[in-house]
Write a protein that binds this DNA or RNA. Structure first.
Lengths: 339, 339
DNA sequence: CTGTTAGCGCGTTCAG
DNA sequence: CTGAACGCGCTAACAG
């Protein structure tokens, strides 16, 4: 069983040429139904398996999508990957998953590897360390379509699938304001990432709209870790500076903040109100008083996959790039008004 | 830029043979350092990228691992995938992720696809519908090493990486008994899956050890969905039949149960004690009073990947198969004794 | 140390 | 409708 049969074996067994076999196997209309069935039977009999490697080499395709995310196990990304995989599967594509672990160097080597593997398309959510996009030039230079998702790229000529971060930040902040909060701290993320810039901008805009002062000290930059949220919340509570509420732009910091609050035996939202960007299992399990800005990873994944598949099918990437913005919805976990 | 340069192009430009170029590019010791650097420079200049497809076809390898899980976004699996990816990356392997969505039919077609893609090894966590393993024969018949992880296979000759479910079930139940609970309900999972059988067996053994009666009605089979846990808990609370505690063999049902309890304004563990199999972000965020049997997906993933890589390197799969059992640890979230 | 030759297995000409 | 021949790009074997 170790010597795998090839189209030549089945051709020889039938006294025909391998090219006919090839045609039959590809269901070409230029082969008699009779010989076609004969060939298929023989193939079955010999346990023939098409060598996709050879086929791909010849056709110069791989039916494979490369996906790069910072970290697979973060729920947002795993659900995005789920969406990508499901969409890709339906189109007959496989998905190679790689994680940058937020490291630029690793991201670079992964990109090179995927280009070498000749993936048909690439989906990327860049690392926190990624400040420019030079290492991605190689992708386009090799004619491989590229779509950024979630952590997007504001350089002209690229395609993005993202959620409306500005509106999300705005809605979150306004929600807190409507609840009667005035002094609202914002847990931000790395400034280099567009998404955090935009959420911050939304926060500012909401304050402005409601004539609340913007205090620079109310912005706390986190590195997307639980402990950041925990420590930040700790120092807020220690100061007791009349902070009413927190809007966290990332779920990890929000979780840390909740934990800190619980450890202090405080109750949410009676003592402090929080709104955080988050995703399902976290937001469903997390202290229900936390309202969340839900960013559906599944939907982003599916949309991004569809986009890149369309580029692949059409064999062309739009020069200008295109950006698809999905809506993030505020999910109010506890409607009891405060104050 | 669309016509990609090959080793022949760079050979021609340098008036040498392509095989020398190939050797240089593979850093063979049988090429002068001088010509080697000359070649590398030229390669850089032309923007040469090795065609891995061709290379793989020739070498008959893909440096790719196929991974099949029921659902990527479930935290246990995404963390297992993370472990697999990290280990694979270090060894120079890529990982193709596929999800069965708990459907046997889909699992079958995925398996065939991965065999056709000539993955070098395959890791699988079977679907709930998978009652026998015939569709996996093709994997071995094609000489592809196969490792089951988490949802394992008790058929002789296969390799498994799993956690000690019996001990986990035993520990969870005993923990509840030590807390003073006598009437303990068990949320089980599909009986077809070995892991749930074993957890159930552990539950029974703990009862027996402590001379508590086993009541058949205390076993509730769930389908790994939140709503199962929710509804089951609901009926338990309605009956008010003096149930003291719940041991959930799956995290989804545990989450559902917690939600139900919260909705009823009950407090954990004052009103009811729960121990559930679970994983990190869920267990850290979930009501902290829930003790959990922690099954490290990362560790299972890493172990499984190492195992299959060793099979690939050694080019042989042990006839008898081997099973690696990892420990699941009870994490006590709240040590306040009840009763 | 380098060149020559011969495929890996398949798909696509171009004849007939 | 089918056969013959070639090539995708690379590597392995054998010469020299």
């Amino acid at each position: 069983m170790s010597n795998k049969p090839t189209i030549h074996d089945i051709a020889k067994a039938l006294n025909i040429d391998s090219s006919t076999v090839s045609r039959a196997l590809n269901n070409s209309p230029r082969v008699t139904l009779k010989t076609k069935t004969k060939i298929l039977e023989k193939a079955q009999e010999l346990g023939y398996k098409r060598n996709v490697l050879a086929s791909n080499l010849r056709k110069n395709v791989t039916n494979t999508l490369g996906v790069i995310v910072p970290r697979i196990s973060r729920y947002f990304f795993s659900s995005a990957i789920q969406g990508i995989e499901e969409t890709a599967y339906l189109a007959g594509y496989n998905v190679i998953i790689c994680q940058s672990l937020e490291q630029l160097e690793r991201e670079q080597s992964i990109v090179n590897g995927l280009v070498e593997k000749r993936v048909d398309g690439m989906l990327i959510s860049i690392s926190m360390e990624t400040l420019n996009y030079q290492h991605l030039d190689i992708v386009k230079n090799n004619g491989i379509p590229l779509v950024f998702f979630d952590r997007h790229c504001n350089v002209e000529g690229n395609s993005n699938v993202l959620i409306d971060d500005f509106k999300g930040g705005f809605d979150a902040t306004e929600h807190l304001i409507f609840q009667g909060n005035k002094d609202i701290v914002h847990f931000s993320g790395p400034n280099e990432l567009e998404i955090y810039k935009n959420r911050l901008a939304g926060y500012k805009a909401a304050l402005k709209k409601h004539n609340l002062p913007f205090k620079k000290d109310n912005i706390i930059v986190t590195r997307l870790m639980e402990e950041d949220g925990f420590k930040s919340m700790q120092s807020i509570l220690n100061k007791n500076d009349k902070v009413d509420a927190v809007f966290s732009a990332n779920d990890m910091a929000a979780i840390g903040a909740i934990k800190c609050i619980k450890e202090c035996q405080l109750k949410i939202p009676e003592d402090i109100a929080i709104v955080g960007f988050s995703n399902e299992p976290i937001s469903t399990v997390i202290e229900p008083a936390l309202s969340t800005i839900d960013q559906s990873g599944m939907q982003i994944g599916k949309t991004a996959a569809k986009l890149i598949l369309s580029y692949i099918e059409n064999k062309q990437i739009p020069e200008t790039g295109e950006t698809i913005v999905l809506k993030a919805n505020l999910i109010e976990r506890n409607s009891s008004k405060r104050n």
